[in-house]
């Protein structure tokens, strides 16, 4: 009986608090993505259009470690018995990636372009019991700070 009580309180704590935190995180991600939408970001090697005088080129990174809650872990454990999409982990990796890219963009405000973006995912704290603790995402790219070109073609952000 005691086991069940502990389990139920943990799972409802995980569900309600986890859901609230996730909602808040998604809200923050959406507003920040909207705010940073004008920053030119591609994963191609060459910069877009022509650049003026290049002042600085640097490697920029952003990372995020996001963890699952108790409810998601149990739900994923159940889903693994039956097969199919582990829906509770999908939001986890989605949030982690978007957060990492946002942090990368925020770390180089004022950059003209961010090019050659690469994203790496790894799961850390994967303990003995093979239960996932959290997922880490590293985003890295090259930021170019350049003056506007003198005349002619230019990469315009609309």
């Amino acid at each position: 009986m005691f086991d069940i009580a502990v389990f139920l309180s943990l799972i409802s704590l995980g569900y309600f608090v986890g859901r609230y935190l996730e909602k808040r995180h998604y809200h923050s991600i959406n507003t920040r993505e909207q705010a940073l939408i004008k920053v030119i970001t591609t994963n191609t090697k060459r910069p877009l259009g022509t650049l003026g005088k290049v002042n600085k080129v640097e490697l920029v990174t952003g990372n995020a470690v996001i963890s699952v809650d108790y409810f998601k872990r149990v739900a994923a454990g159940l889903r693994k018995l039956f097969g199919g999409n582990l829906t509770t982990y999908e939001t986890l990796v989605d949030r982690a990636r978007r957060e990492a890219i946002l942090r990368l963009k925020e770390s180089c405000q004022g950059a003209t372009q961010i090019i050659n973006l690469r994203i790496e995912t790894s799961s850390i704290s994967q303990g003995k019991s093979n239960q996932i603790g959290s997922v880490e995402v590293l985003a890295y790219a090259t930021a170019i700070y350049a003056d506007a070109p003198q005349a002619g073609k230019q990469a315009t952000a609309e």
Binding site: I37, K72, R79, A155
Partner: peptide, 27 residues
């Protein structure tokens, strides 16, 4: 070449089904 970023309205990378519904079904 223009740069014209837009954000997708709908996030297709996650499932939109209610997690409790899925949980109850699996259980």
């Amino acid at each position: 070449m223009k740069y014209q970023a837009r954000l997708p309205e709908h996030n297709s990378n996650i499932s939109h089904e209610h997690p409790l519904k899925e949980f109850a079904l699996l259980l």
